[in-house]
Write a protein that binds this DNA or RNA. Structure first.
Ligand SMILES: NC(=O)c1ccc[n+]([C@@H]2O[C@H](COP(=O)([O-])OP(=O)(O)OC[C@H]3O[C@@H](n4cnc5c(N)ncnc54)[C@H](O)[C@@H]3O)[C@@H](O)[C@H]2O)c1
Ligand SMILES: NC(=O)c1ccc[n+]([C@@H]2O[C@H](COP(=O)([O-])OP(=O)(O)OC[C@H]3O[C@@H](n4cnc5c(N)ncnc54)[C@H](O)[C@@H]3O)[C@@H](O)[C@H]2O)c1
Lengths: 192, 192
DNA sequence: ACTTTCTTGTGAAGCTTTTCACAAGCGGCT
DNA sequence: AGCCGCTTGTGAAAAGCTTCACAAGAAAGT
């Protein structure tokens, strides 16, 4: 949001304005920010540039995060070509797949590697994140292999609840569940 | 989870077992379910078949939801070929794109339609959901058009906060933010 | 029939998050 | 300088969510 305000030439922004854009309340915006420090000026609001920079540091976006993509299928290829990742500092440093037909093919500058190399690739490239875009049946195994190799976090697209050690954050993307959330809300609303 | 337990031949399941699988607590499972009714047997747990069926009804999955896909790009094509949607009752009934090169092409049984037809397609096919896989700059316009046509819910992949009337649920999928959540947790953990 | 073993459903307690409301501070205007 | 209109940062109150703990019920064995 702050970047889009920058593009529109905004210099300062109030908690009220941020709240309206983000569908929340001004008090919530201020309370949340206050947990990390005091970034605004009374009577004026927040400096858009400064707040953006501070948030980037808080979120850990002041560095490049090397990412390994596992699973060169339909969702994997869409993600690989998604330019927003790189713009935010997430750089795909390796692609891994188990299908012999796909291994050796080039995607951009990268050659698709066999699953056997996953562990050594993570170590050599010091990858911090893996994106898991493999079938549900393979996901747990790939996750364990990545954890063994010292990965720091996992973005999981497979519709399974991964079992990983405490301290390794996992974010799950389950699109069927997102649709189910919509169905549920629509069903509820129509029953009032 | 219940379906995977069914596949493994499980007949009953306790709140404790569900909690372990889902990384939550037994009390939480029981309290959540109790908001919708009383589905279990004391001393025995829940009947897997019955609980699955009851949850399907609660979530509104005892019907087919006609979906229109807007944006036949990289993410759109991955989603179109994703078999789990149809298995859960989400059936793609139309595909819409603005690119003249793409309009008229066939994806499976469906012909890609021009954006101008979006409103009439939603009305004619009684579509309840749209999946928005268009560039951020086009998302708000497509959302408004869909709402005008009487859509009931929106699954939005564009990295913008859509402004829609109250009562139209929107679920946002923002993959960059998922990665940022991982970066944040890793950054925090390393600062302790 | 009685005891043992399990597990649910749920008030009450404990904890977290959100909202309220206002003193304190900034900038511009007279 | 003094006043006025805004907006932050934050304790305190309100609301919401999670955990505790246990009575009540179900099955299985004796
Ligand atoms: N396609 C979508 O829109 C979509 C959406 C949400 C979630 N998902 C999930 O993402 C995952 C992938 O979906 P997809 O549609 O891209 O499937 P896909 O079959 O197109 O691709 C999966 C890829 O993973 C590879 N693979 C299989 N086992 C592997 C292993 N052990 N190591 C490395 N690679 C392996 C396969 O060779 C294939 O290239 C699935 O779990 C699916 O449920 C897909
Ligand atoms: N590719 C990814 O992995 C990915 C991941 C997450 C989010 N997204 C988001 O999803 C959206 C689409 O991404 P993509 O990578 O598929 O882009 P893309 O450019 O491959 O596809 C976008 C498609 O939308 C069409 N389009 C443009 N304006 C339209 C309009 N007004 N009506 C109908 N169709 C229109 C284009 O012709 C194109 O076919 C973007 O907002 C992107 O930020 C993409």
């Amino acid at each position: 949001m702050l970047e889009s305000i920058q593009d529109d030439g905004g210099v300062t922004v109030s908690s009220e304005q941020l709240a309206r854009r983000g569908h929340t309340t001004a008090a919530q915006v201020r309370k949340d920010l206050s947990h990390f420090g005091s970034f605004g000026k009374r009577g004026l609001g927040y400096s858009v540039d400064e707040l953006r920079d501070r948030l980037r540091i808080i979120l850990g976006l002041d560095q490049v995060w090397p990412v390994v993509l596992v699973g060169a299928g339909r969702i994997g290829s869409a993600l690989f070509e998604y330019p927003d990742f790189k713009r935010r500092g997430y750089e795909c440093v390796a692609i891994v797949d188990s299908n012999p037909e796909k291994i050796g093919r080039k995607w951009g500058e990268l050659v698709i590697q066999p699953t056997a190399k996953l562990e050594s690739l993570i170590k050599e490239l010091c990858a911090t994140l893996v994106i898991l875009a493999v079938p549900a049946s393979a996901a747990q195994l790939v996750a364990e292999c990545s954890v063994n190799a010292g990965i720091n976090g996992i973005l999981n697209f497979a519709p399974v609840q991964l079992q990983v050690p405490d301290g390794i954050p996992v974010e799950n993307v389950n699109l069927v569940m997102e649709l189910e959330a919509l169905s549920f809300q629509i069903t509820r609303a129509s029953k009032t």
